[in-house]
């Protein structure tokens, strides 16, 4: 446990000792702020229109603001996480610092988990800034708290999947660009994998739907926590980290 923490802390700090963390956080908050502001403004305008014509009936703040906001956040993480994870092992290999890790009395699992939590830590820092949006919503309206909490829960799980994927590809190469590009491409592929479902047979269609990263998120966005969805994300993370372990171990044998 201590070893995981030592590694995670070093990598986490190293994000802040280089421009990576600042650029990713700034980019993230700029886009999120933009989306929130205009999403909210649009919702207010639309609601005003509704009230003018349909008297009384209106879109809830959950459907109008919260759901699209966190849905978009998921998409932005799909873009940004590769930039966070691409260095984790690729850079260590390039700088030969991996030799320090691999000749220290720690297990490969501890190294991988340390890296995983460092990247997840940065994601949590990014997420912590976004708490300001629900605060604004509570200050101006009366949103439901449930969907907000579950959205965060879902976002953490789904970004953890991107992180696991990113660590896997980072372990495969010493080139950060390749690691990042493969992470993004594969992540996107798991987003849209369900598109093939409509033209697949009945069994395959179920399988493809189940494999999709985004389909499992929709429940969380609506305030529902289902164990199936959580289990899917946890298995995705587990498989990603397990494969990373296999990849790094096999490099030693070559």
């Amino acid at each position: 446990m201590m070893n995981i923490f030592t590694i995670a802390r070093r990598d986490f700090r190293s994000y802040f000792n280089s421009p990576v963390a600042y650029i990713v956080i700034t980019g993230f908050l700029a886009i999120m702020g933009y989306m929130f502001y205009f999403g909210f403004a649009h919702y207010v305008a639309q609601n005003a229109q509704y009230q003018q014509f349909n008297m009384g009936k209106s879109i809830s703040i959950t459907d109008g603001v919260i759901k699209p906001l966190y849905g978009n956040m998921n998409l932005i993480f799909l873009f940004l996480v590769p930039f966070i994870t691409m260095r984790l092992f690729a850079e260590e290999k390039k700088l030969h610092t991996i030799e320090l890790l691999m000749t220290s009395p720690v297990t490969l699992t501890e190294i991988i988990l340390g890296k995983f939590f460092s990247a997840l830590g940065l994601v949590l820092v990014m997420l912590s800034f976004t708490i300001v949006y629900p605060i604004i919503l509570f200050a101006t309206g009366n949103p439901e708290i449930g969907p907000i909490v579950t959205s965060y829960f879902g976002i953490i799980l789904v970004t953890a999947c991107y992180v696991a994927l990113g660590i896997l590809f980072s372990a495969m190469t010493e080139n950060q660009i390749i690691a990042g590009a493969l992470t993004f491409a594969t992540g996107l592929f798991f987003w849209i994998i369900s598109w093939a479902a409509s033209s697949a047979g009945p069994v395959w269609s179920d399988v493809l739907m189940h494999l999709s990263l985004i389909d499992h998120y929709s429940n969380f966005g609506q305030g529902i926590v289902s164990t199936t969805d959580a289990f899917y994300y946890l298995s995705f993370i587990g498989i990603g980290l397990f494969l990373t372990h296999r990849v790094l171990d096999s490099f030693r044998w070559r």
Binding site: R10, S14, L95, H96, T97, I98, E99, L100
Partner: peptide, 17 residues
Amino acid sequence: KRNVGFLPENPPVYPEM
């Protein structure tokens, strides 16, 4: 590994630290 200190060919140092 507990009992060994190793200096590889390229010193395994992190430039940002």
